[in-house]
Design a protein around this nucleic acid. Structure first.
Lengths: 246, 246
DNA sequence: CCAAAAGTGTTAGGAGTACACCCATGA
DNA sequence: TCATGGGTGTACTCCTAACACTTTTGG
């Protein structure tokens, strides 16, 4: 193990990527030989943190090292530190030794982050050959390492909670977006359907969602009007004690 | 430092206690001699965690050791791990050495908990002579150690958020309570005033707030009817996809 | 009988919800 | 001209917010 690392504290990343159809999660495939058998499962990107590194910097570093992405929305969830979180499955002990980390008590501090896959390129991210974007609903059928399923559930419910009162949807969209794209995000994340007219009525009342004099092009149907999110207007309203809810 | 402790991970407790008038915080007074001067400030109860101890168990242990209270509501906030959180003030380094903990990188995982001071006895808690219950608004004028002010702000905003959608108010009340007591909690925590009639109308629609055939006694005014919170009814409704909001 | 807090209804405005058809574009 | 998704209004219900007086008890 590298000497500059804290042996008992790690960071894991639940990276949500929206590709205008699905909400995806970035997972790293992992293969373990254990007692003659080959096991395959998936984990979040993550690493021990450095002794001279803030938690928030560690999470940014790990995402940058894996994907090259910088300046995206990222927020800490909470610490997960069960005694047996790394050692429930015997084969994981072998894996820890194989990556030169024979420490069995690691408290992990997961972050979730939001990426627009159109803008950031769904394929550009594949710097690590074992990394994959997987639709959230599909993840639930996969074998996740350690307590990563529990972390995912926590991340999802936190995301849903924060989406209700904060302008996070725009982190998942390109700068210019259509109202249908915006609506789709809420539908996918809350696993529901929304009424188009009611949704648009609500949006029309939000001064910080600004209509542009631009349209989609190259679509084989009536092109949608494009909008943008004005963080300036939003901040001004918010400081006047305003309550954002979509 | 005790050998059974993780050197880089601690737990801190933001204990909220409601005494039917104020929302209080449990603080530990701390005196430091540094370069000939005596400094006094306040910190949350907290300690390093044990190597063989879950995070949630550590927080319960620390509260129990200090106050004797068990089985109260307790929830993790998030990790605080700035590089300089312990070393911003030079005198704190001396203090760390004085308590036999010369490690300057400690990530702390704060919990908040809710205590009813009527039931648990505002004075019984004073097992530690340096411990005090301090009204939240007064805390803001006091000198808090390390990043404990930041942790307090985070705890308060988390508490407010959770109060909106979870039945936490009842953790701060005796088992039998009046509607005025209940209303007072929301008023104190949200620093607002509520209309008595509208508040009661809302409560009347909540089947899990059950009127009892009992009244206050020994009050020098019309005695209030007493109510209780039925967790059973609440759980049943919640599992049917119900949305608690006060 | 006084002080103190308990208890109680109505109304008006705003927000949410349900619902169906025409429009603009590319192929 | 067809397929595809874009764009629009109305009516009903329910929730919220504003507001003031009478009741019950102990002292």
């Amino acid at each position: 193990m590298h000497a500059g690392l804290l042996p008992n504290v790690s960071v894991d990343l639940v990276v949500f990527g929206f590709d205008s159809v699905h909400l995806n999660i970035l997972l790293i495939g992992r293969s373990i030989f254990y007692k003659g058998d080959l096991y395959h499962d998936w984990k979040f990107p993550g690493d021990l943190i450095r002794k001279d590194e803030d938690l928030d910097d560690a999470s940014k570093r790990i995402l940058r090292e894996l994907t090259g992405i910088e300046k995206i929305y990222m927020k800490q969830l909470k610490a997960f530190g069960s005694l047996n979180r790394l050692t429930k499955r015997a084969r994981d002990m072998d894996w820890l030794i194989s990556i030169d980390h024979p420490e069995n008590r690691v408290i992990t501090i997961p972050y979730y982050s939001l990426v627009n896959l159109e803008k950031n390129g769904k394929n550009d991210l594949m710097l690590n050959e074992n990394a994959r974007w997987v639709p959230v609903n599909y993840v639930k059928t996969m074998e996740l390492a350690f307590d990563h399923l529990e972390i995912l559930e926590f991340a999802l419910s936190t995301l849903r909670n924060e989406m209700r009162t904060k302008p996070l949807a725009f982190e998942l969209l390109p700068q210019k977006f259509s109202l249908t794209q915006l609506q789709k995000i809420y539908e996918v994340i809350f696993e529901t359907t929304l009424d188009k007219r009611n949704f648009r009525k609500k949006i029309a009342n939000l001064s910080y969602i600004v209509p542009l004099n631009e349209q989609e092009n190259d679509v084989s149907h009536r092109p949608a009007k494009l909008y943008m999110f004005s963080r300036d207007i939003y901040q001004r309203l918010k400081s006047r004690n305003f309550d954002f809810t979509i």
